[in-house]
Amino acid sequence: MTAIVETRALTKRYGRRTALADCTLTVPAGRVVGLVGPNGAGKSTLLQLACGLLTPTSGTVEVFGRPPAADSAQLGRVGFVAQDTPTYAALTIADHLRLGAKLNPHWDAALADRRIRRLGLDPSQRAGRLSGGQRAQLALTLAIAKRPELLLLDEPVAALDPLARRAFLQSLMEFVAESESEATVVLSSHLVSDLERVCDHLIVLADSRVRADGEIDDLLATHFRLTTARRDPDTLPAGMRVIHAEHTERQSTFVVRADAAVDDPSWAMEPLGLEDLVLAHLETAADLRPALEPQR
């Protein structure tokens, strides 16, 4: 599996505020990768570092084995849909497409026109008068018609109503299907249900650390909720890694990672939904935080 994006100890600071600290991860080729984590986990910073909008304070980030935005060829291979999908309010849709055509070497004008027509948008309309969903679709069209090998999307649906969100994801999945696994997509969101639908790979990021990373099906197959009479997590069999533990007076509830469910009369072990799986990792990260971060 070749890595499309590879970061090593990637760190970004703004003055004294650290947005991303010591982040090491790889994005495998040909996948739709969901990047999930709480607000402030550094998702947006990570994506902007990967597309070269930001430069790292320390550590490295490589895209296709080279620094991001190194030259125009590199820029042409990466599509980026920024948060809140900015467009030029004063320019029309046609102007935006012309802009894309003039600035990108592999621009697919037919694809762009087809998409705009199918979305029912009037090319002579100014982008400033589009709805949030339409603007997002325009931004996606601009990014897709570049024929990128890597498409980065920073919370593209966060501000959209459910209908527009679904339409956006449909467009995105159409692109993925048409690219036939040639393209890699990284999509950040905190809506796990959306990610479960459209992604096949998930990276859970909290406090700049990768908490979980893998194919969604594998993650689902190896995470379980184990409910039992109150007991010490250390007494669980080897091969079970406790992600998260909660105790009441009598009961213990663990989220564990194991190769398969183990039947035992003393507990109930059931598969975990993706949302709960992500939450378990994030809660663990939140529990650990005071210990990791020395008081200033």
């Binding site: 739709v32 679904r166 994801l169 449909q170 467009s171 995105l172 999945m173 159409e174 993925v176 299907a177 048409e178 696994s181 639908r197 459209v198 992604c199 096949d200 099906d217």
Partner: peptide
């Protein structure tokens, strides 16, 4: 077609393939 299902249902095409 895989592509049509992916676009219609807004679902990863690999999921349909699987």
């Amino acid at each position: 077609k895989v592509k049509d299902v992916a676009a219609k249902v807004a679902i990863n095409p690999n999921t349909v393939l699987k």
